[in-house]
C-alpha cells in the first residue's frame, strides 16, 4: 500500500489493516509492534525497563 493509498483510507479501514498487520507480526515472534517509527524511542524505553527487571526477548 502506498502512502497515498494509506492516507486515503477511512480511520476504520486504517484500524483494520493495522490490527491485521500487528497480529501477523506478533504471530511470527515480534515482542512489540508500532504504527510508525516515531513510537520506537518509547518502545526502547520500555525494553530498557524490562531488561532492568531481568526480562529477555520473547519473555514478555
Amino acid at each position: 500500500m502506498s502512502l497515498n493509498e494509506y492516507t486515503s483510507l477511512s480511520e476504520f479501514d486504517k484500524e483494520i489493516v493495522i490490527s491485521k498487520t500487528a497480529n501477523s507480526f506478533m504471530q511470527n515472534g515480534a515482542d512489540f509492534t508500532i504504527k510508525t517509527m516515531n513510537e520506537l524511542p518509547g518502545i526502547i524505553e520500555r525494553i530498557n525497563s524490562l531488561i532492568s527487571d531481568g526480562k529477555r526477548p520473547r519473555t514478555n
Binding site: F25, M26, N28, D31, F32, T33, T36
Partner: peptide, 22 residues
Amino acid sequence: MQEGVNAGVWSVGVIVGSSEMG
C-alpha cells in the same frame, strides 16, 4: 521478525509503510 527471534534480540514490527500491510 523471524531473523530477530533467531538472533535472540527484541523484535519490533513497524506497521505503517510495511510490506506486510499489503
